[in-house]
Design a protein around this nucleic acid. Sequence first.
DNA 1: TTGGATGCAAAAGTTTTGCACGGTT
DNA 2: AACCGTGCAAAACTTTTGCATCCAA
Lengths: 139, 139
Amino acid sequence: MDIVDDLKRNGLKNTKCRAAILGILEQSDQPVAADRLFHELNEKNIMLSFSTVYRTLEALTDKKLVKKLTIAGEDKALFEYNRKGHRHYLICLGCKKILSIEHCPLKGYEEILKKETDYAISGHKLDIYGYCPDCQKHE
Amino acid sequence: MDIVDDLKRNGLKNTKCRAAILGILEQSDQPVAADRLFHELNEKNIMLSFSTVYRTLEALTDKKLVKKLTIAGEDKALFEYNRKGHRHYLICLGCKKILSIEHCPLKGYEEILKKETDYAISGHKLDIYGYCPDCQKHE
DNA sequence: TTGGATGCAAAAGTTTTGCACGGTT
DNA sequence: AACCGTGCAAAACTTTTGCATCCAA
């Protein structure tokens, strides 16, 4: 099982909670908030406490199995399975759905910026906002 | 006084608190967090409560005099004087200093994305992370 | 004078932590 | 058996809100 391997390879014990949380994230195409994870797990009769959800997410984030992200207009953090590889997000302002964009239009720009500013650039984060086709219809 | 005009033009009463908060933001080249504003004002012997700081920031944000933003790795919201015009941020991972970048390398990209996804694109947010010259030296 | 602005205190929401207990290796 | 993981409750922290009072227009 991939998920158990993910855990073991990173020196994390394979427990019901961790496998369940990592599993949900791995199968979701959307970043998920901590409270949503908590409720989804409860629905599956996997009872765990809020502290465990947060501690698990922290452990998984530390080991880079999971990415933590925040988007403008959201007060809480979101978590997603770390599928490696650079990604941007297209966020629907109507339904809050998040689409991953794998193509990066900023290749080369970091190099230009480095020359201009003398900063050592280590990465960037691009979020694009708009309305998905569904939300355009209903308004 | 520009700041008083800003307030009046937007139907906001000109009060000590609002002028002080807007003034600090206007003179800062960095986005500022609510608690930092609170402390800076106290140092200037302008005593006001936390609720007022938040309520004032909310009013100023609603009127678009101020922009509210959140950056990855920061738990609290930051606020900056709205200097109009599109901006990106270059954030130092060492000292957390934020540099404004006025040039936008994404002209045209939104149009391409619109065709690819059928989303109505309304904007984007680009944060670039790195280390400023000072922080590069001290490490 | 009147409605909006402020202070205080309490509440709400998310996230963290202390401590005792339980499960994995 | 040892150590890490978990549950529960309480705390920390940012932000919001209710209500009485105060101030700008």
